[in-house]
Design a protein around this nucleic acid. Structure first.
Lengths: 235, 235
DNA sequence: AACATTAAACGTTATTTTGACGTTTAATAG
DNA sequence: CTATTAAACGTCAAAATAACGTTTAATGTT
């Protein structure tokens, strides 16, 4: 099939930005600043330029809002219904990002009116953005079942109760804290520090960090956290 | 950001078609019929029309070559490097399909010169099609770890040695046949038939089929097939 | 200083699952 | 009737599991 007759379509990028603040999983939304659907909550997005790859475009767009570099960013799914945008035919390549909220600099929020929402309390969004968020949540569940990517949501040092809170939020279940802790520590992925975080209890919880040297050989062990039927409801 | 200034880009579909013939996992390739790269092996593809969604486009393109309906088709990844196509800027939305080769009607192969290749013996492909195949293999490994989608590669009735052969091919390992069989049967996903397939041995192997009634409640159990470190090398 | 309180840490137990592997069986060929 | 072959059936010690209880560290109050 020759290329010349092929239609040309506008290609957009939409970003589903997940953040964790130490106790809750959150989603970053922006107020749309123009018609149609002005002033409604939306995912952050933009268009792909002619001289950049779609991955470069998504990095540029994400950096423009958050000011962050080196954020975990993964392509999710391309949404391509004919009438998904009311102005003209547009396909959107959706990416999801994982951000430690403590690292997020809010310097751009006056430009975009960006705001974090708890994942359980997301307002209705424009176009197919609701569907994008659902798809991203599901992808996160799949990915986190077999890969420790959710550590991208944590700061360099974190506690066991914090990690568990994050897993509880992602899978929408309550893991047994004794079994969760035993299994996670048995993966060999963590280094225990001598400092404690006293914010959550009187005793204080030990800080941990990822053992980068053993990461590659132990990362597959993360699956053992989720093998109980209750934790596999997302399938 | 307003839409009017956004560039328009050609949007293509490329299909990675996996098939299983009862003993080997295979990939369907076509000989490219026009320049550039005429007569070289390539994935099957086409362009998205203005009046169809990307999912409809992929179904149309796949049906055009294979003649099959109801084929398992899943969006894989959008490839969007600037110069991935030498004629003009094109992004490609890659899908992978799973086909039972016995159902495949070769009526189109004179149009496209389509041919099955064993997954371990794939020739070099045009553009970024090699990367698409690698990405699809990895996605299949991820997906099959948590979901019994690979049954889409099997006929209605299949044997235990056939399923294992398929898993061995997907994960590039040799599962222990006694443990594999015990675990798979313990999922409750299969119904044992009274017929035997005598092609592979003198005793003959019992046929099984999927228990559709118990599918939803048992599908998560498929993960138990792959929890040994050797089987998780794809992570 | 003593006591109360709280969440984190440490732990127990019966059951289930696991990997590694051997043996028996069904059916065909000679 | 015997030999052969792959499928089916199985054993076993070790490891992991879910469910849950107890102890500890540290702070606040009296």
């Amino acid at each position: 099939m020759k290329n010349k007759a092929a239609p040309h379509i506008t290609v957009a990028i939409d970003c589903i930005v997940f953040g964790f603040d130490g106790s809750d999983l959150k989603l970053l939304l922006v107020k749309r600043g123009f018609n149609p659907e002005m002033n409604k909550w939306s995912l952050m997005g933009g268009f792909v330029n002619e001289d950049e790859s779609v991955d470069d475009a998504s990095t540029r767009i994400l950096n423009k809002l958050t000011g962050l570099h080196g954020v975990y960013l993964e392509q999710l799914h391309t949404f391509g219904a004919v009438k998904r945008d009311t102005t003209e035919r547009t396909i959107s390549i959706a990416y999801f990002a994982l951000i430690d909220i403590a690292k997020y600099k809010q310097q751009l929020s006056h430009d975009y009116h960006a705001e974090w929402f708890p994942i359980k309390n997301v307002p209705s969004l424009i176009f197919d953005h609701d569907a994008m968020v659902e798809e991203a949540k599901k992808r996160l569940q799949y990915k986190a079942a077999l890969h420790p990517i959710v550590f991208e949501l944590l700061p360099e040092k974190f506690t066991l109760p914090q990690i568990q809170s994050m897993y509880d939020a992602i899978y929408e279940v309550n893991f047994d804290k004794r079994n969760f802790s035993r299994k996670l520590l048995s993966t060999g992925l963590l280094i225990k520090l001598n400092e404690k975080d006293k914010a959550g209890s009187k005793k204080g919880a030990f800080y941990y960090m990822l053992d980068k040297e053993k990461y590659n050989e132990n990362l597959y062990k993360i699956f053992s956290l989720i093998i109980t039927p209750d934790h596999l409801q997302f399938l």
